[in-house]
Design a protein around this nucleic acid. Structure first.
Lengths: 151, 151
DNA sequence: GCAAAGTCAGTGTATCTGCACCTATTATCA
DNA sequence: TGATAATAGGTGCAGATACACTGACTTTGC
């Protein structure tokens, strides 16, 4: 029937594809990082904070492409575990600054070799062109602008 | 310092890239599907059920690359909304079969044009080669096998 | 200097995600 | 046939995600 012919297109759905890929990749990184006591999302958070330095929550959210309110809760978890610290901005009483703690730095340093191994294996498994393409897509302005559209 | 030089590699993290892409893409599809009362994940679920026919939960989970227990709960939400129905398998009392309901079929049919529009816009925004690459990666056996590794 | 508008972040609510563990049922084999 | 292994699925727990709304503070314009 016609309805099912139309539906066949949905097997190509980019939302399904991106989510399925993210789930599989996250599972793999989580598994490898587990012995080090942090999750893949936390590894991302900590390395971003280490590289970029103390950041207001909103800017950090934009940096890793997550919703600000999502980051608020992820930071609360990481703060609970002592991996990050939250403090008031001296200049602007509205802003809260997130910073990586010494314990957080130790955690990310300890986890780095495991991360690197999975990153290498995964790059090999999917092929370097595909890996480059994924990074380009996720980091490029097209996706960000695209997601922000309100039409 | 040396530690930060090492950390620079993590800006290339494929877990961050895949999650960031999935978040942005999901936000966009959710926004477009919202007027039709379903989410992107539900659209995926319903179209998969419509195309594949009634499925045991485990097989459906494998089909869309999600954890079985995740799907159990997503199906419960969809069942609550009357979009899918769950029933016992006649041959195997352990198995539960998920099937799309008439209401679910109406919902996915109603949402299809909106989905198609976003899919087209997104394909254009990221470029067809990148879209093909993403689908290949997410659907190919390499990722599935990769994620299942236990070493 | 003050009211209005803009900005920054937290909370309520709901969904998605998955590991560890559990129960129930079926298959296998001595 | 009865014990054991294998399989299908649910639950507890914890975290990730984001929209709508709110409160607090800052900036702007007069």
């Amino acid at each position: 029937m016609n309805a099912n012919l139309d539906l066949l297109q949905t097997t190509q759905c980019l939302c399904l594809a991106s989510r399925r890929a993210a789930r599989a990749i996250t599972r793999r990184f989580d598994k490898a990082l587990r012995p080090h006591g942090i999750r893949a999302t936390q590894f991302t958070l900590l390395s971003a904070l280490k590289l970029a330095g103390p950041q207001p929550i909103g800017e950090l959210a934009e940096l890793i492409g997550a919703d600000r309110t999502t980051l608020t809760r992820n930071l609360a978890v990481a703060a609970e575990q002592g991996l990050v610290a939250l403090c008031q901005d001296e200049d602007d009483a509205r802003a809260h600054i997130a910073a990586i703690t010494p314990a957080g730095q130790r955690a990310v340093k300890k986890a780095l070799p495991a991360w690197r191994l999975v990153q290498q294996e995964l790059t090999e498994a999917m092929g370097k062109p595909a890996a480059d393409s994924l990074r380009r897509v996720s980091a490029g302005p097209s996706l960000i602008l695209f997601a922000a559209r309100h039409d």
